[in-house]
Structure formats: C-alpha cells, structure tokens
C-alpha cells in the first residue's frame, strides 16, 4: 500500500499511474498476439471440419489429383477431379511469375541501387500505391481492357484466358515483390559496395557480383511470397481467366482456378452436401499449399537452407 516511508519520499512499493498503464498495455498486447494465433487455428479447424467428411468418405486421391473432370453438380454421376483446377491455378501463377519476377527484381534494383533522393521516394510511394489497388479493380481491367486487347492483338475468339489473368496477376504480385526485394537489397551493408567499388568494380559489377548474391535469400523470399499471392488470389483470376474447366495447352486457353471455383460455387451449394464439402477440401488443399510456400519463404529469409 502507498505509504510515506520513514526516510521521506515514496515507499519502495508505490505503484503510480505508469505502472498500471504498463501492465494494461502488456495485457492488451498479449491478447492481441494470442488471438491472432487462435484465429488461424480456428479457421484451420473450421475448414478441416467442413472438408473432413468428404476427405474420409468420397475422397479418392487418384480422382482428386488425377482427373480433370470437376462436375460436382452432375445429377447422375458427380465427379470431383481437381486436376484441371490445379493446372489452371498453376498456369496462371506460373505466367504471372514469368512476368513479375524480372519486373519486380528490376524495379527493386533500380529503386534500391540507382535512384536517389526525391525520385526514389516517389517511386517507393508509387509502388506502394500499386499494391493497394483492390483485386476486383484488377479483374475489371482484365475484363474490360485486356480482353478486347488480346482479341485484337492475337486474333483469338476470347481474351479471357491464361495470358490475361497471368498478366493481371503478375502486375498485382509485382509491387509486393518489389517492396520485399528492395528491403533485401537495402539490408546488404554498404561496406560491401564500398569495398567492391574500391577494388575497381563498376556499379553494375557491384550489383551483380556482390549485392545480389548477398541478398539472395531475401530475393528468393520475395519471389516465393509472390507465388503465394498468386496462388491465393481469387477475384481478379475469376474475372480474367474465363472460368472454364480446361487443361490448358496454350496461353490462349481459358482456365479455372481453385480459388475462383470456391468463390463461384460455394454460395450455390447446400450446406453439408457433398459438393459443399468437396469445395472445403479444395480449401484445405489451398491452405496447405500456401502455408508451405509462406513457411518456405520464412525459412529462406532466416537463412535456414538445406544444403
């Protein structure tokens, strides 16, 4: 209890306002941290619970991964082959990376190593603005700009295809990849650049032989996070990919992505039906894949690489 000490001044156990504020903030931060973990776990439990029935009863690994026939609404013979959906997601993400990796690494190198002062700040803000564009807007661009453009340029019947959605997705993933890649470059100590320059290396040689090798884990993480982003993206892909079940053989084929399938079909299924549960199985699959990608990225960032 607060008490005047015999020697004057405050008693040694006196608790003032700061003490209570400190304790309060500690509790709040603790709740914040724990609830984050709880949310993730409960989402996972929920998805698993909903999808589990299908996994244990109708699920056949051979059909799920081997058959391109996704026809859960067929009245006489519903089939649940996810191969075409997986191929759709993979092809779109793959093309997106082909576009985004050189773009974003190039942008990161320019912003991090060449630009200085004002232009550099403007560029960074611009990249962050790009990252803030909602995905439905990207999808809209895919539908209304890319679609007619592709039809006209390549003389194909439909412009909603792998090319369209891969391009859109590449543009979407590039800003975040640029930001992370630039952070990785910035983390390379300047003494390395100075040492290499003092040895007579040109700016470009410094970047190629010293900075990029030193930043490699971070750059790899940037790419992996971009892949994760592409995998999980729904809206833009739904709008720009054509949404038709296909094993793509060229970039002009329409495809359907895993995420888009869930988004488009979940609303029309009866809760608890086979179809409903099959969609949740797709969800589990997506969850696991993105989780593995993000985990890998995380491990790479920490430099834990298997030799």
């Amino acid at each position: 209890m607060p008490q005047a000490s015999p020697r004057g001044g405050d008693a040694i156990d006196r608790r003032n306002l700061d003490w209570y504020i400190d304790k309060g903030v500690q509790v709040l931060v603790f709740i914040g941290g724990v609830s984050g973990i709880l949310f993730v776990i409960s989402i996972f439990v929920f998805i698993t619970k909903e999808g589990l029935g299908f996994l244990t009863e109708q699920f056949s690994i051979g059909e799920f991964f081997g058959s391109p026939r996704w026809a859960p609404t067929s009245s006489h013979n519903p089939t649940y082959g996810a191969l075409a959906l997986i191929a759709g997601t993979a092809s779109v993400t793959g093309l997106a990376m082909v576009i985004a990796v050189p773009f974003s690494l190039g942008a990161a190198i320019f912003i991090g190593e060449f630009a200085t002062g004002k232009p550099r700040e403007y560029l960074k803000v611009l990249v962050e603005l790009l990252a803030a564009i909602p995905s439905v807007v990207w999808g809209f661009i895919g539908l209304s700009i890319m679609n007619p453009l592709i039809i006209k340029l390549f003389n194909v019947p439909v412009g909603l295809n792998v090319l369209n959605s891969g391009f859109i997705l590449g543009l979407m993933a590039a800003p975040i990849m640029t930001t992370i890649a630039e952070d990785a470059l910035k983390a390379v100590p300047d003494t390395y650049r100075e040492a290499a320059e003092a040895l007579g290396a040109t700016r470009w040689q410094v970047i190629l032989r010293v900075v990029i090798p030193a930043a490699k884990p971070g750059l790899l993480a940037a790419v992996l996070l971009g892949v994760g982003r592409g995998f999980g993206e729904t809206m833009a892909v739904l709008m720009a990919s054509g949404h038709s079940i296909n094993l793509p053989t060229s970039v002009f084929d329409s495809v359907r992505a895993l995420t888009a399938t869930i988004a488009a079909e979940l609303g029309e299924t009866a809760v608890g039906s086979d179809h409903y549960r099959a969609l949740f199985t797709l969800g589990i699959f997506l969850f696991v894949v993105t989780f593995v990608i993000n985990l890998t990225a995380d491990l790479v960032v920490r430099g834990i690489r298997r030799k």
Partner: peptide, 21 residues
C-alpha cells in the same frame, strides 16, 4: 576512368571488409 584509378590505387579500410564470398 574511375576503374583505372582504383586499379592502381588499392585501399584497406579501418574495419576489415571482406566481401560476402
């Protein structure tokens, strides 16, 4: 040419700064 200048003039820094190679 700066590259030629630095070829003739080597520098050792206060803190050892080997390249990460």
């Amino acid at each position: 040419e700066l590259v030629q200048v630095r070829k003739r003039i080597g520098m050792v820094f206060q803190r050892p700064n080997p390249l990460p190679l």
